[in-house]
Amino acid sequence: MATFELYRRSTIGMCLTETLDEMVQNGTLTPELAIQVLVQFDKSMTDALESQVKSKVSIKGHLHTYRFCDNVWTFILQDAMFKYDDGQENVGRVKIVACDSKLLTQ
């Protein structure tokens, strides 16, 4: 199954990566096993987002930069507004990184 490594940049992914880094550094884990854990994280995170998350968000903002490279869209928004179930967030600058969802289903 194809997975994205995209979500490793999220908080949960970074926390896992840091943990694995430390454990590899102090010799508790082999790098190979650490990478296996990361790959499993890619799968589990993708599955969880698909199956457990139902919320919807609407995003508006001024598009400062757009980029489509290697099938990844990158948008940088200014004065963006995020509306979601629990409320609304405004940020002066936000980056959106999005992989092509079709690549997972192929």
Binding site: V57, I59, F82, E89, S101
Partner: peptide, 21 residues
């Protein structure tokens, strides 16, 4: 299937629509 880290909050979404100028 997104993860947002906005204003120190982590917010997950199943769908999102964006409209940008």
């Amino acid at each position: 299937d997104g993860i947002m880290h906005i204003n120190n909050k982590d917010i997950l979404f199943n769908k999102a629509t964006g409209e940008f100028d």
